[in-house]
Nucleic acid binder design. Structure first.
Length: 735
RNA sequence: GCACCCAUAGCUCAGCUGGAUAGAGCAACGGACUUCUAAUCCGUAGGUCCCAGGUUCGAAUCCUGGUGGGUGUGCCA
């Protein structure tokens, strides 16, 4: 084998050397699991001999000794291997750091960037991310999606694939009509310019306006239509249940706040404490009942026990009932008739009334108007289309401002208004071929049993209109055909896991091989300390507001450190640092992890954060600059200088850098930016240790160590710069 | 009911596809600014890797069963 010219080849070289040694000793040809030992004193890269012990009929430690001796003779004179040593049942290599760093420097100067793949053929990959609705501005959830998609695209592209960044803007449908209708009725011709508001926010305000107006309408309807029904339920058997609900008591507390009476409010708060007890009682009851039922298989006996549980369980229920009564009695005693009406209505709306059904009924004025508007849109009504074009224009302009701020971009932008009719021909063809069948009511459906799931999935309604899935099938097909894709990826939250399983399954039935070329990059939700973001409750973290906040917080930090810096420079750094903190925070979680965003705790600039990486980078750059070296220009390594790098920390840094190609390969194959973030953080951590140690001072050290350390700084600066670039984090030369 | 995901330090998370003594950040406590930039470093403390079995030379990691939490399960999008 030729001498290794890359770190990856070196890894293979070591593996082959070890495998040859094993075979020379009569062992089997197996893959050896080369991994770093837990302690650097043991070596840099090693493998366990357990799997070889049985076939070679030797005790592991003795075998390790034997393999080590064999390797020592075979590796003699190898420029990359300093030592081979046995450690119990393990065989470890100690590498020559100078040789390793020379390889790294060589790769960093080569045309193919260090860490990009060397062997695989490039693939054409389309990755769809963001996919926003044009009825409201983007929020923190979108930010995670945008950054995840954009960063994965960066990684795949860096790795050597041909990447198409796609966005499918959901610009049509009933939800769009809601904001349009509210604007038409309440907007008075307002524009973003006149209101001084970003277009997406302006439209979002009308979407909210629609919902509050609709809620009012629904409440009035419920009160008028179901008054008798409400009263009956409330004072009948469900009284205790309804009144003793957390939501009811909370609503009542709000009502109490309108007629200030501290004593009552206090009492309401005390009673709210009962809910925790109620929950505990319920859990106990459930646990006891389950334990009781568990050993009993007979169905009738189980049912009897469920219906007539033993006294202990009844006691628990009684305790709970007493608490409920206390809460109910409090509300009944202190409510005014108006308040009770309001509570009834809220209860009915939350428990009994199907708001979607109401929206879709002729009873709802706003619902009917919105649906009519959708019909007009589909019929190309010029007035509706004009309004739609105007408002969508505002929203998209707003989106693009936000994308630009985040550094997120796209190669292809599709609109659902152009794609929503796609897929029908595909369904027709599938129907002919028996992929789909016609249901009794005329709908065209897919039998999910064909792909190992249960139930049916409709792809055409009885009236022949298409569904979301139909459109997705058509859009995917068009993308495969137009772009000759090897892979099609969707960055979408994990609540749509099932949808994509179905979609890909059907695609696979329609076209051989498409299923395996599709991938759903599923990621966890962004939660707030109190739970999910709910626009209804005003807990949504707006993307633009968040970016503003990050910039402001970062500006405060910069100002606190460099009071005399001019304001432009403060702002420039604040944008870089604030965005870095946000990006790193979101990308440092592995995608499947759902994360809790706590503004108090999440917006940090110290510890494992983006600015920590930027800081380490800035310091390497500063040292290079002081030495008169340009980090952008190439550096010619001098072996004597590199050989002077012998401290444990220097070795550790070099070894860590050698792990970059593996980190990129891993991130690219798993679509996981957190691997890159983790690598960057480890790099920064090693550097922080390096900088804090006076013995490792670069500029004050003697030649040839000084040149060696400068070469190391140069290599680290490049590697960290590339990692930060992939994460979309701006580098700074001074912090 | 069924399906999928998750459970690791007080909190938030890693843990390289089964290897050697399970790691970081935050929070707590103690120490280091005459600095190649303290957005930093060093140290102390903190663990029944949810529980019970199984596979294996070896399990946080794989399998089975349970418990707890989340998300789905539209002829909605």
């Amino acid at each position: 084998m030729a001498a290794p010219t890359t770190v990856q080849q070196l890894h293979l070289h070591l593996h082959d050397l070890a495998a040859q040694a094993v075979q020379a000793l009569g062992g089997p040809a197996v893959e050896l699991n080369l991994a770093p030992p837990p302690n650097p004193e043991m070596g840099d890269l090693g493998f366990p001999v357990f799997p070889l012990a049985k076939p070679m009929r030797k005790a592991p430690p003795a075998l390790a000794e034997e393999i080590t001796r064999e390797l020592q003779t075979r590796a003699a004179g190898d420029p990359y291997i300093a030592e081979v040593l046995a450690a119990g049942p393990y065989v470890n290599f100690r590498l020559n750091p100078a040789g390793l760093l020379r390889l790294i420097l060589h790769e960093q100067r080569s045309e193919r960037p260090f860490g990009s793949h060397q062997a695989e053929a490039p693939q054409r990959v389309m990755i769809e991310y963001s996919s926003p609705n044009t009825n409201k501005p983007q929020h923190l959830g979108h930010v995670r999606n945008n950054l995840l998609g954009h960063t994965v695209a960066n990684i795949l592209s860096f790795y050597g694939h041909d990447v198409i960044r796609a966005n499918l803007i959901n610009d049509r449908g009933i939800h769009i009509c809601k904001s349009m209708l509210a604007y038409q009725r309440f907007g008075h011709g307002e524009t973003p310019e006149r209101a001084g508001v970003k277009g997406d926010h302006l439209v979002g305000d009308y979407y909210v306006k629609f919902n509050t107006e609709f809620d009012k309408e629904a409440e009035q309807y419920a009160l008028k239509r179901f008054k008798d029904d409400l009263l009956q339920h409330v004072f009948a058997e469900e009284a205790g249940v309804f009144l003793a609900e957390p939501a009811t008591l909370a609503a009542f507390k709000k009502l109490l706040a309108q007629r200030p009476d501290p004593a009552l409010t206090q009492e309401a708060e005390r009673l709210q404490g009962h809910f925790a007890t109620l929950k505990a009682l319920q859990d106990q009851e459930k646990a006891q009942l389950n334990a009781l039922l568990k050993p009993i298989k007979d169905k009738a006996e189980r049912q009897r026990l469920t219906e007539q549980p033993p006294q202990a369980i009844l006691d628990l229920r009684h305790q709970a009932w007493t608490l409920r009564q206390e809460i109910a009695a409090f509300i009944v005693k202190h409510r005014t008739p108006e308040e009770l009406d309001r509570l009834h209505t809220l209860w009915y709306l939350s428990r009994r009334m199907d708001k979607d059904a109401y929206f879709n009924s002729d009873d709802s004025d706003l619902g009917a108007a919105a649906r009519e508007m959708l019909r007009q849109w589909e019929a190309d009504d010029p007035e509706v289309r004009a309004l739609w074009a105007t408002m969508n224009g505002w929203v998209e302009a707003g989106f693009h401002q936000t994308y630009d701020r985040m550094g997120v971009r796209f190669d292809h932008i599709d609109h659902e208004s152009e794609t929503y009719l796609l897929g029908k021909d595909l369904v027709e063809e599938g129907l002919q071929r028996g992929v789909f069948h016609r249901a009794a009511n005329g709908a065209v459906v897919f039998d999910l049993a064909k792909i190992g799931l249960s139930g049916e999935k409709a792809v055409l309604r009885p009236d022949g209109t298409s569904l979301y899935t139909t459109q997705d099938l058509g859009t995917a097909a068009r993308r495969f055909d137009n772009h000759h894709l090897d892979r099609l990826m969707y960055v979408v939250g994990d609540e749509q896991d099932h949808h994509f399983k179905v979609l890909f399954g059907i695609l696979g039935q329609l076209r051989e091989g498409w299923q395996d070329r599709c991938h759903h990059l599923s990621y966890g939700m962004v939660l707030l300390p109190h739970g999910r973001m709910k626009s209804r409750e005003g807990t949504v973290v707006d993307a633009d507001d968040l970016l503003d906040l990050m910039e402001r917080l970062a500006a405060d930090e910069v100002r606190a450190r460099y009071a005399d810096l001019d304001e432009d420079e403060i702002q420039r750094r604040a944008v870089a640092i604030g965005h870095a903190a946000l990006k790193f925070f979101l990308l440092n979680y592995s995608p499947p992890t759902s994360l809790t965003f706590d503004p108090e705790k999440s917006l940090e600039f110290t510890g494992e954060t983006g600015p920590y990486l930027q800081y380490a980078y800035a310091r390497t750059g500063s040292i290079l600059a002081k030495a008169g070296l340009d980090p952008a220009a190439d550096l010619e390594p001098d072996m004597d200088a590199l050989a002077a790098l012998t401290s444990p920390l220097e070795r550790e840094i070099i070894l860590h850098l050698a792990g970059w190609p593996a980190a990129v390969a891993w991130a690219a194959s798993k679509y996981d930016p957190s691997k890159i973030a983790g690598f960057g953080y480890q790099t920064a951590r090693l550097l922080a240790r390096f900088f804090s140690d006076p013995d490792h001072n670069v500029l004050k050290s003697e030649e040839p160590l000084r040149s060696g350390r400068l070469a190391l700084m140069w290599a680290v600066n490049r590697a960290l710069g590339v990692a930060l670039g992939l994460l979309g984090i701006q580098t700074l030369n001074e912090m």
